[in-house]
Design a protein around this nucleic acid. Structure first.
Lengths: 337, 337
DNA sequence: CTGAAAGCGCTAACAG
DNA sequence: CTGTTAGCGCTTTCAG
């Protein structure tokens, strides 16, 4: 039950294995009749090319490593979906590795990819990673690295992410245009770039429209439905006046919405709400929740396309790292109109 | 800028490359001092083992192919998350392929895996697949194949899925206990085992509680929000009497819920709804949707564990295919109480 | 148009 | 304990 090789095909046809190899690779200087015979015999013998051997010899594996924190968060699985789709269309396969947000696992992932001789790596950094040598090392080895979403300037490689500042601005501006004067922002840990940017967008929008930045309207907590609820509760308890809520992500926005409902505060009549991420539930709740879409699948597709473009040019690290900033998309639903 | 090999290490240390190879593989008959020196030099020279070469020679790649319809559905990405986690803990890596529910792509995926010499494949069948020769062929080639969720008896390989019959029964019984007498079941193509099983559970529950099986209350269509809407529309148009809906999966259930809302039919007062899958949105829509949880991450972990156990025994296809049936979990929410 | 030959980087006997 | 040797199955010159 040994696997059939080009030698087996050659023997059956009384030609040399090197002719078989060329025939299978559609080499121009092989007779059409020979090619035909070889192909037929290959099918008859259930031949499947051994990519290990071919990769070892040619130096091309056609494999790209994808290193993400987890697939159990729809943001990441959507992006990976986009990456795989485009890579597959271009003849590449994906080796998958989850860092589980753990620095050491991220390093293990990079090592695995190096040993598998992937032709490049597409990654989003683990939250616990503070040292980026394993990524910078890839650059030294001339292994193409492309980052998405959680990018790190220090690494200095091409990346794709959305304009979080613009998204924050857009969400806030939308509320202002809907007539809100006192807009709450619920945010989180300011270590992560993207959340800092959303907050910056919020402040800039207020400034632009001549509204004061009131720090008592800005909250920080851990991403959760509870966070949204608690903030609303606190605002109401303390009789703080507000007419708009911009939550830094959808689950927090959902919590705010739920609490407002519980407190019989009408949305959007009394308070308008918008969040960020466009998770699946937002369109189906009542009232449906306005949000900012991050174009996750497109982010993956664009990441793959940029990667492919850059490796095709064959000078991946020779120019300044190219970057793609996707536009956030304002999704206006019932909660804000 | 050539990659360093065991020959480079050997040269630096004035020993032969085969000693280096053994040292790196921690072979027992190599002097501790030699091992130490080799390891140091390996680090100094940034050596990374070439797995292509080692796999080619040893016949072991340590790669398992995971072939799923898409990662853009949380059910599948959760399962893949579970698979990767367990496989990774056991030294295996995952090559990922999405069939996009397309038969031809599924075949391409299998071929790719064959060429990459994966040590096995874990897969869930595409909905459009009607011919299973590409899977049966794996058995003939003695390539371990394990299926999950969308299993097919005809293929005859080990699998992991939930007790879809029990889930269907449980969902229907729940509606009956809530007082429903005329329960609609929206299902799909009966080629896929799991959907057939859910339907069987539905019928058995009706029987058990002495309710008639009315074929005019059973619908078949393509998984979508539209399917749910259309069924409700049709029922109402034709003035069919019904007081419960059991949708074979959540998106269809969502469609039903939306249409009922549009038609001003109160849920759960007039019609109670339950679906299947426990997608993220179900808990947050209004009314929140009852459903049956499939233990997705656990399904992936169990699939990986069963796979590992079976390949370790080294007689993957010699016994009757083993299977793991996970318990479905009833999630009662507003739509059914 | 086909064949011969070298070798990608490693594993795994076998010999010493 | 270390070295020699023979490949794994393919790609890729170079001859013919």
């Amino acid at each position: 039950m040994k696997k059939t090789t080009i030698h087996d095909i050659a023997r059956e046809l009384n030609i040399t294995f090197s002719t078989v190899a060329k025939a299978l690779n559609d080499h121009p200087r092989i007779a059409a009749a020979t090619k035909e015979a070889v192909r037929e015999m290959a099918i008859k013998l259930n031949y499947q090319q051994n990519k290990l051997a071919s990769s070892l010899r040619s130096g091309r594996t056609g494999i790209v490593g994808v290193l993400v924190p987890t697939l159990d968060v729809s943001f990441f699985s959507s992006v990976v979906h986009g990456i795989e789709t485009v890579m597959n269309e271009n003849g590449y396969n994906i080796l998958l590795y989850q860092s589980k947000e753990i620095y050491e696992d991220e390093i293990r992932g990079v090592d695995t990819f190096l040993q598998t001789r992937v032709e490049g790596i597409i990654s989003s950094v683990a939250l616990s990673t503070k040292n980026y040598d394993h990524f910078i090392d890839l650059k030294k080895r001339k292994i193409p690295l492309l980052m998405f979403d959680r990018t790190v300037d220090e690494i200095g490689v091409p990346y794709v992410r959305i304009d979080d500042y613009g998204g924050g601005f857009m969400a806030t501006e939308h509320l202002i245009k809907q007539g809100c004067k006192r807009i709450v922002h619920i945010s989180t840990d300011q270590q992560v770039e993207i959340f800092k940017e959303r907050l910056r967008g919020y402040k800039e929008a207020l400034l632009k429209y001549g509204l004061p930045i009131d720090e008592s309207l800005i909250f920080y907590g851990n991403l959760s439905i509870e966070l949204g609820k608690n903030c609303i509760k606190k605002l109401v308890d303390e009789k703080v006046d507000f007419d708009g809520v911009f939550a830094f992500e959808d689950y927090t926005g959902l919590g705010a919405l739920k609490e407002l409902k519980d407190l019989k505060i009408n949305v959007p009549e009394q308070v308008k709400v918008i969040a960020f991420a466009n998770e699946a539930f937002g369109a189906h709740i009542t009232p449906s929740m306005s949000t900012v879409d991050q174009q996750t699948v497109k982010m993956g597709e664009e990441a793959a396309r940029l990667f492919l473009k850059l490796i095709k040019e064959n000078k991946y690290y020779e120019n300044a790292p190219e970057q793609i900033i996707l536009d956030p998309i304002l999704i206006q639903r019932e909660s804000s109109q």
